[in-house]
């Protein structure tokens, strides 16, 4: 129990610190590296919440594939853009941004502490998660069973979304001349 609390606090502090690093670093490459750390810490959160498949997918897809794409574009474009944040800044932009952020986190926390009434309904027609994990001998099997039984249609729509994204990237990446 104590170990659980300590690991949660350490993870929470590390995640929030690296997330602040993402928006605080001047250099976009440092921000991207900080974001990779945030994603890795979130994967550890998922492990703590016993979502093994999501944790592995988070590391492979997010911290791997998506961030490689990010770093590729950052190194291609932003090497000479380091001074971007200093030039021509709207004077009260940071103050107003921070104030609005404080209001948002206060409102969210207020809602979480007072209004959060969580009741469980399942759409996947599956049994409860722990039951499914023991039935299918693992988290990934339970995930796959739910994905291909209750969530088959959203899964297929996802493929359409990916095709549209590929077409969009092709159209924007094409040289017009």
């Amino acid at each position: 129990m104590t170990f659980e609390i300590v690991s949660f606090v350490v993870l929470a502090v590390a995640t929030v610190a690296t997330a602040i690093g993402v928006i605080a670093f001047k250099n976009a490459i440092h921000s991207a590296l900080s974001l990779i750390l945030t994603l890795l810490f979130l994967a550890l959160f998922y492990l703590q919440l016993q979502a093994m498949f999501i944790a592995v997918v988070q590391i492979l897809i997010y911290a791997g594939a998506i961030m490689v794409l990010f770093l590729f574009v950052v190194t291609m474009l932003a090497s000479d853009q380091d001074e971007l944040a200093l030039r021509n800044q709207i004077p009260w932009q940071r103050m107003v941004g921070g104030l609005l952020g404080l209001i948002l986190v206060a409102a969210l926390s207020y809602l979480l502490f007072t209004g959060a009434q969580v009741t469980g309904t399942t759409a996947s027609h599956a049994e409860s998660l722990k039951q499914a994990i023991t039935t299918y001998q693992g988290d990934t099997q339970a995930f796959g069973m739910a994905l291909f039984h209750g969530f088959l249609f959203p899964f297929e729509v996802t493929s359409l979304l990916i095709v549209v994204a590929i077409l969009g990237a092709l159209v924007f990446g094409r040289r017009t001349n």
């Binding site: 932009q93 921070g98 948002l104």
Partner: peptide, 13 residues
């Protein structure tokens, strides 16, 4: 909520 807010602040500033 805190991470979400950090993201919002990043978009704003």
């Amino acid at each position: 909520a805190v991470i979400f807010t950090i993201g919002v602040i990043g978009v704003l500033i």
